[in-house]
Structure formats: C-alpha cells, structure tokens
Design a protein around this nucleic acid. Structure first.
Lengths: 152, 152
DNA sequence: TGCAATTTCCCACAATTTCCCACAATCTCC
DNA sequence: GGAGATTGTGGGAAATTGTGGGAAATTGCA
C-alpha cells in the first residue's frame, strides 16, 4: 500500500484540469503509470487513489455476493459510486470529471491532502472551515477516536 | 473476471439507443467483440455483462440443482428470462430492448455505474434516491456488510 | 403478400478531450 | 544573487466522441 505525505495548494484551470505537484508525483510508485482513480469522499471533497489501491479497496467489497441482500448491494453501490479513471497528461495534470467538481464544489483554489493511501481534494474555503476546530473540540474528537479504536 | 471502474452520464435517444462512453468501452477486454448481455437488475435498474461474465453468472445458477425445489426453478427462470444479447453499433451504442427500458423506467438521462464485473444502468432520478443515505443508515449498512462478510 | 414497425447502417454536426506548444513562476545550485 | 533547469499555467488546434436523424433493409404480423 502506498502512503502519501503532504498538503499542497493547486489550481484548477477552466477546463477542469488539476496539476499534480511534482512533490506528490514523486511519491507515486513507478508502477502507477498514468492512471489514477477519483471518487467522491464522504465529506464534501474528492478522493484520489492509485488504481491498484482502488482495486484493493473494491476487492474487499466483492468478497460478499450480490445475491446476499438488497442492503449489501446498496452498500457496495454507495461505496463505489462516483469512481472514475483519470489519466495524467504530459503536463502532470488530471482532468477531473465535471460531476465530481460540482459535488465537491471545487473552483480555482484546491488543496490536496495526502492521507494514507488516499489523497483528498478540497476546495480551499471548505477545507479551512473543516479544519477550524478549537482545542476543546479537538480533544473531544481524540477521545472519541480512542474509544472507537478500542472497541474495534 | 473483469473489474470495471467508473460512473457515467449517458443519454438514451428516442430509438432506445444508449451510447457506451469511450472510457468504459476502453475497459472491455478485446475478446468481448461487439456482443454484450443486458438483464434486469434486482433493483429497478438493468445490468450489462460481457458475454463471458454472463456465462459465468449462469454457471453459478447451475451449481444448484433444479430438482431442489420449485422456487429454485422459478428463481432461475425469472433471472434468466430477462437476459438479452445486444450488439454494439458503429457509433458505440447498444439498442436496449423496450421491455427492459420499461422495467427500469429509463428515460433520457441514464447513469452507467461499474460494479465489479457488472455495469448497472439506472434512471438518473432513481439512482440518486438509491444513493441518498444519511450517516446513521450508512453505518448500519457497513455493520451489516461486516457481519455478512464474516459469515461467508 | 403487403403493411407497419423495428433495426441497421449511414452521415453530419456539436461538444469534449487530447495533444501540443509557449510563457511565467519557482526552485536549485553555484 | 543570478543563471539555468524544472514546474505550473494557459490556451490553440486537431482528433475523438457523443448525439441526432434519414433512409434502406429486415422482421413480424395480419
């Protein structure tokens, strides 16, 4: 599994192209080639995976048979909906599908945030408000994380 | 097994023709040729398979013997009976049989969603409501998935 | 057999995507 | 700090794709 590190400011041009900062590009394993997968995130953001990591994610889903139940089918759909292949062009850019741009309300200023094997894409303004927590709230969140972690 | 990736907006024209986005077409193994199989989905949608994957599906059905029960025979019959061969034409379109269009209530705006080795076809409005979950429901679905997965 | 409906095979235009180049900004190394 | 290399940004133009419709060929039905 890939583990990306870093946070980057990027610009989206009028054609919906987003250039991948070279610092990030350099972290891609060579095998990635030029193909990535973008999908909707749970929050108002998009998520970028290498194709391999995406297939790993979905392979998990496919261990459960569709005949099982409507809820299983629904869960799989919700999880995978929106996924799209994108190609990196000669100038290290990807063309983000319009639908997804709208979903995440991406305009000109985009923030890329590495997060494990995922890279999140946020509209700058939305990202800032997402990060806007005070110390008390942060410590509460940490507590919650700790609890859930021990529950499994 | 093929694993398709992507979600696409497509238009169905007045003749019932649906064009296959080139991004999706490019994912078909070459051996596919121009023949696909459409069938009813369990939900109000249609499902598109490569001919090979369809044969795998039906092979799965035949692992349970017809002698078993009337319900088994009935299930197999209903499942198989909606299946139709369709040809991809020169403009990368397929002609979706009317009966199936009616079944899935497809009108002009259709969404193609890859789901493992299947491609689902949804009416846009219906698809959106299928995907519309709140956080509570989602976590319930995730739990269910987790259980089923461990049961096998 | 003849009519109506469907399907296939064309062509054509509009929209999108890709490919390419060029310049500006930034970084690196001396 | 400065010069060259690299990276980021923008846009033009060609190629590809999506969409629609006309008309011939085929099918099904009466």
């Amino acid at each position: 599994m890939t583990a990306f590190i870093g946070e980057f400011n990027c610009k989206l041009d009028e054609k919906g192209r987003l250039s991948i900062p070279s610092k990030l590009r350099a972290q891609f394993p060579e095998a990635v080639g030029n193909t990535l997968v973008v999908n909707r995130g749970f929050e108002k953001c998009l998520v970028l995976y290498t194709k391999e990591d995406w297939l790993d994610e979905t392979a998990k889903l496919n261990t459960v048979d569709d005949f099982m139940s409507p809820d299983i089918r629904r869960f799989k759909r919700i999880f995978t909906n929106g996924a799209n292949l994108v190609q990196i062009d000669g100038a290290q850019r990807i063309l983000v599908p319009k639908k997804l741009l709208e979903y995440a309300e991406l305009t000109a200023e985009v923030i890329l945030v590495a997060n494990g094997n995922k890279i999140e894409l946020w509209d700058q303004a939305i990202y800032e408000s997402e990060l806007n927590v005070d110390a008390a709230e942060m410590s509460q969140l940490a507590q919650l994380f700790h609890q859930q972690r021990n529950q499994g």
